[in-house]
Simulated scan of single mutants.
Amino acid sequence: MEPVYRTLEAVAGSIAAGQGVRRRYFGLENIPRTGGAVVAVNHTAYVDFLPLGLGLHRRGRRGRFLVKSELMDVAVMRYLVRHARAVPVDRSAGTDAYRAAVQDLREGELIVVYPESTISRSFELKEFKHGAVRMAAEAGVPVIPTIVWGAQRQWTKGARRRIGRSRIPIDVEFGAPIHFGPATDAVAGTAVLRETMTTLLHRVQDRYPDAPRRADWLPARLGGSAPTPEQALVIEDAEAAEKARLRARRHGEQPR
């Protein structure tokens, strides 16, 4: 893990420097110096893992990311996933990945989880899966609620790509650890986590500079042109149906 991870960190830092990205970190002291923890982070961009990973690096830690198993179909990504010890998750059968993540947490690793599972087109928090709370409670480790904001200006769904030297500010805030006991109800615990992250998201947004009205990377709630959560859900349902149709077509099946 170490040689590949060190290389990835160097590459990520070089990319950020080349783009002139202005990264600001808040709450770094909430990342434990040692021991396991679940880092639960919002998901607004294809590249939001870069500022997050560099933030953990500033604290002297490295995170193991739970990633979609589909990435293993791409040779380069398969190499990176294996050598950076990311945890591929098959959404239709995630038990093995869950068990591996719990064991890693018990052994002192940081596991990075996107509770929303997919990118939010509205840039608001989607509904959360329960895995982050369940694995933290089972492993006896805290959850670190985390917000990355600004990465959606670089590369996301439904907005113009701005990957060049754009000097985009990106803020990352690590919230205070949340401890869930072994008897925690996953549904109730997840509601607490989502509420905490919503408060954290709004605080980060309120502090963030350069937010012109009608911007395509800004939520409708703040005057941006991004779809509302309800509109985004319609788009996502249509995309999911199309993916199912294409998948069934490849396998000669009838879509459900």
Rank of each mutant, 00 (worst) to 15 (best):
211 A>S: 08
21 V>D: 00
28 L>Y: 05
78 R>V: 13
52 L>G: 02
109 E>N: 06
55 G>W: 05
99 R>E: 09
205 Q>E: 15
104 D>W: 13
142 P>Q: 10
133 V>C: 09
196 T>C: 10
203 R>F: 00
196 T>G: 09
206 D>K: 14
152 Q>A: 05
123 F>S: 08
209 P>L: 12
75 A>F: 06
209 P>W: 15
214 R>M: 11
228 T>Y: 05
171 D>G: 11
144 I>M: 08
70 E>T: 09
10 A>V: 06
226 A>D: 11
76 V>D: 00
192 V>D: 14
129 K>W: 01
84 A>G: 09
141 V>K: 15
162 R>S: 03
140 G>T: 14
35 G>M: 08
183 A>P: 00
40 A>L: 05
238 A>Y: 13
130 H>S: 10
86 A>Q: 15
38 V>I: 09
40 A>I: 06
248 A>E: 03
134 R>G: 00
181 G>V: 06
25 Y>D: 03
232 A>H: 01
222 L>H: 14
108 G>K: 11
131 G>V: 01
162 R>L: 00
66 L>R: 02
212 P>L: 12
30 N>F: 07
181 G>L: 13
102 V>N: 05
216 D>M: 09
67 V>K: 02
102 V>I: 14
255 P>E: 06
109 E>A: 15
148 V>G: 04
70 E>Y: 00
94 G>R: 00
31 I>F: 05
246 L>Q: 14
48 D>K: 03
120 S>Y: 07
10 A>M: 07
22 R>T: 03
192 V>N: 06
76 V>N: 00
133 V>Y: 05
187 V>W: 13
234 V>K: 13
198 T>N: 14
